[in-house]
Design a protein around this nucleic acid. Sequence first.
RNA 1: GUCCCCAUCGUCUAGUCGGCCUAGGACGCUACCCUUUCACGGUGGAAACAGGGGUUCGAAUCCCCUUGGGGAUACCA
Length: 473
Amino acid sequence: MNKQVRTRFAPSPTGMLHIGGARTALFNYLFAKANGGEYLIRIEDTDQTRSTDANKEIIKNGLTWLGLGPTDGKWVLQTESIERHKKAVEKLLLEGKAYECFTSKEELEAMREEQQAKKETIRYDGRHRDLSEAQKQAFRDEGRTAVIRIKVPTTGKTGWDDAVQGRIDVPNYTLDDYIIMRADGFPTYNFVVALDDHDMGITHVIRGDDHINNTPKQIFVYEAMGYDLPTFAHVPMIHGKNGKMSKRDGATNVLEYQLAGFMPEALNNYLMRLGWSLGDEEVISLERAIEKFDIGDVNKSASTFDQMKLEWFNAQYIKTTDAQTLFEALEPFFKEKNLNVTDEVKGYLLNGGIDSVKNKTKKLGDLADACAFFFNKPPFSFGEKEVNTLNTDGYRNNLNLFVNKLELETAPVNHDKVSEIIGALCEEHALKFKDFGMPLRVALTGTSSAPGVGDIVEIFGKDVSIANIKSCL
RNA sequence: GUCCCCAUCGUCUAGUCGGCCUAGGACGCUACCCUUUCACGGUGGAAACAGGGGUUCGAAUCCCCUUGGGGAUACCA
């Protein structure tokens, strides 16, 4: 039987969308797409006290930004299936595969301390596994409320063939009869995950390797319910320089990368290269990755987050993205920097402006800064370096020579024409190209860090160029 | 404590069932070149198989141990 491949990403709205979660989502997406399957989203909100609607929105926005929304368009909430979960608990109870446990939290705590002291495995000891009806009633009379625990084998081992980690076996004596329904009546994570993955027809469970320890517990549910096991694939986590990925290593919240000026394509590319590679290829599009991705090729070892390389990827994408697309991505950054985009400026930016500066920046915010001079109008407010440049007598003279020539031009002036004019002036006055470069750049743009003067004149046009230069004389 | 996982340049990685590896690529660092600024780009360079035992004619590649990291041990997910 060849079932259609179906993966899922199951974030918990108890926090924001973590960078590691984004990579897990990406691998799920890639694997599903690579196999012509579906990639679903299930928001695990069973912890009613810690889940928030705000976090649900943040997760949704983050995934949407990355282009990793569900292929079926449905953002499923786990709590929507709560009645089904409760029915499953009842079924296991009825079949004797689960049981009521009245042990109080204090008793549990005491039990753990004792085990700790004896250097034993810390686990629930199964003390209420085989309570008689009379005993149960006695506890109820005491006012105790039961939790439901699932019966787990105490000998032997439980294992599976992990698609990335290989064979994993865990001795059953280290596991315990864990709680599948809390005293408040809400089923717990390890129980409902297995139920939902089965119900949603998930064929491949791809998740972080912090879930390896949960997998046997979930396998018990599949077995108790009589379901077939999916394929499990545990991808390594992302670490920081010193252990856990933390703020020191870069933002952990995906949306911060958007705000910081990263392009989703760059973040996806960087994330997929963490633990997966395609020969010597570095810049890999989603399409290309879908063509080549296999979960079995993912590395088993954890990787360290490196912001420098992310920035390099971002620079690659900025360099190869067209001006129109970049302009749209840039708009929020212009707004943030109080740069008002007039039709005139937009014209500059789209007709050569963005292209003239895009290869010098790594982030969209930097790119917006690099574009800032297109918003400048004379009289310019200069920095020290610019003032010094313009106060040089020779330079001022060169400015005059150039602007006089430029005024004589009748046709539109382009890059080559500017080179021609400067070339002729150099010959005539025994000067060098650089005697014109810096002063002209400053006079045209108000700043010393700008593209070549030929490009600037072409973008601004003859009239604006002349006006700008004259404002500095 | 107990259980599980991992281990190639500073970082991300290549290294198909052991020989083609005096270990390749990328980021970062660095030298030089290009150049009207800042960049981009180009050509080089320094930089790694954690340690110890095996197995083998031969190991980065297989086995064991040590060490070092990470994760889990909740009425969180």
